[in-house]
Amino acid sequence: MLGGQSSLELGLAVSVATAIVGTVYGAIAGYLGGFVDALMMRVVDTFLAIPSLVFLLILVNLFTPNMWTIIALLTMLSWLATSRLVRGEVLTLRTREYVQAARVMGSGSTRIVRRHLVPNAAGVIAVNATFTIADAILLYAALSFLGLGLPPPHADWGTMLSNGLNYLFDGYWWIVYPPAVMLILTVVAFNLIGDAVRDSLDVRLRRR
């Protein structure tokens, strides 16, 4: 029960932080384009090239693990994909007539991004945010499983799995299965919601 609290809180917090950071970064890169876009995307590519778990293990060893540092570290790994998605969407949207019309009418770059580009990319951001919750919960469970999660008395599913694994082969299934089942159910649930959100936003998949 208490293990679920920290996992759910952390997943939601990482998802919100990822959506904000990734949206701002991707929108700036996509709107400005040119050299700035290329430079910003190469930074993203550089971070994406590093295996996330290895990167996370290094970072966790540098900082004292608490709820806020774990959220910050998971956000540092998760915003990259969001920024790429938002940047792609903004690149498409910025050539639309209404954006050009807004520009002709004297709207500044900030206003165009804030009022026209980001709201129109909201679908992509919402779908990605839902999947990010599941990813963050899994990544946090992996981190806790390796003993690098929140210290006791915090409880989480990864630590419970890690502790229970020692007893599993002696037949103590009731120590391992409950956190494993909860973890699987949570990830499946958020993936199902993400799929449903994506399908509801996709014109081709919608029922007529």
Partner: peptide
């Protein structure tokens, strides 16, 4: 959607 209903139900339960 069916998947969305199941997902929301699971999340509410968890």
């Amino acid at each position: 959607s069916r998947g969305g209903q199941v997902g929301i139900g699971l999340v509410v339960a968890i």
